[in-house]
Simulated assay, not measured.
Amino acid sequence: MTMKCRLLESNGAKVSTAGCATGHSSAIPAWRRRIEERIAKARALIGRLICFRSGNNRPIIVRTVRMAFAGTNVSLSQQDITQKLTERIDDLKQRIAAWGKRIRRYTERSTQFNQNRLFQSDQKRLYESLERPMVSGTGQATPNQADTVAFWRGLWSEPVNHSEGPWTEVVASQCASITPMDPVIITPDDVAEAVRRAPNWKSPGLDGLHHYWLKGFTVCHSMLARQFQEVFKKVAPKPLHYWDHSFGS
């Protein structure tokens, strides 16, 4: 623990006292507070420069503009003062963007660090924090299920006729010599091998079952294999002759 000595003036005499610096540090780093203050001052300066450019000649505005161009050869009475104001405003905006990007990089890195540390200590708490709905400050109401379904159905369910170009015939001719892939068959042994490598007590999915129970209940491996096989058949790519027919149409 470090000791911090301070000099206090009491009745004209300097008295040396020692005190422990045990105060808690702020959650926001000092450098970030300084950058936020710079951003606030730069935004205020941009506002006054814009006011002066639009014709506001109030004394406080003029004084601020002169301070902004202090140390330069820019005079408020010169012909290209509007261009100089625009350049100064753009420079301040670029500085604000750079400062804001630095704060965002720190925030993202801090969030990743905290999530990694929480993952090592309490995975359940981490997943709960990730699944917690984000609070939006826009004030817009969340669309209901009917509107959402109608929106996406209007995009994906309506038939669309596309006119393919000649490049499709070239691709079809190049794919004609490709040997079709052998059908993939998922067996209970494949399920058992996949479950064997999974962590026992990792956060479960929607079924609520941990991998520990899936490892022990070997009787369900055949059922899982059949279900995975059905899913694979539904999402499996079309055979080559289907694409040949599509490209030729």
Rank of each mutant, 00 (worst) to 15 (best):
R117H: 12
F119Q: 11
R117T: 06
Y127Q: 15
Q115N: 14
Q123K: 15
E108N: 05
Y127L: 14
Q112A: 14
F113Q: 11
R109E: 14
Y127A: 06
T111I: 02
L130V: 00
L130Y: 01
R132C: 02
E108Q: 12
S121R: 13
E108T: 05
N116Q: 13
T107P: 00
F113T: 05
R104S: 10
Y127P: 09
L130D: 02
Q115D: 14
M134N: 04
N116S: 13
Y106L: 07
S121P: 03
Q120R: 01
Q112P: 12
L126V: 10
R104E: 08
R125V: 05
K124I: 15
F113M: 05
R105N: 13
Y127C: 08
P133S: 04
Q115H: 15
R125E: 03
N114V: 11
R117C: 13
F119N: 15
Q123M: 12
E128G: 05
R125K: 10
N114I: 08
E131A: 00
T107C: 05
D122E: 09
Q120E: 14
D122W: 03
N116M: 10
K124S: 10
D122M: 06
S121L: 11
T107M: 01
S121N: 10
Q123L: 13
D122I: 04
R109V: 00
Q115Y: 09
E108K: 04
E108M: 07
K124R: 15
R125M: 00
Y106N: 04
R104L: 06
R132P: 00
Q123P: 14
P133F: 02
P133V: 04
S129Y: 09
F113S: 01
R125T: 14
N114T: 12
L130C: 00
S129L: 08
S110E: 13
Q112V: 01
L126H: 01
M134I: 13
Q112I: 03
E131K: 04
L130I: 03
Q115M: 13
F113G: 05
Q120V: 11
N116A: 05
F113R: 09
L130N: 07
D122L: 04
L126M: 06
N116C: 10
S129F: 07
R109T: 00
R132Q: 03
E131P: 11
F119H: 15
R105I: 04
Q115E: 15
L130P: 13
E128L: 08
L130K: 02
M134C: 07
L126N: 02
Y106C: 03
K124F: 12
N116D: 13
S110G: 02
E128P: 09
F113L: 05
N116Y: 11
M134T: 14
R109D: 15
F119K: 15
R117N: 08
P133Q: 04
Q120M: 06
F119W: 15
E108I: 12
M134Y: 04
R117S: 10
Q115S: 13
R104W: 08
E131V: 01
E108C: 06
Q120W: 02
E128V: 11
F119S: 14
D122V: 12
P133Y: 11
F119P: 08
R117Y: 13
L126P: 02
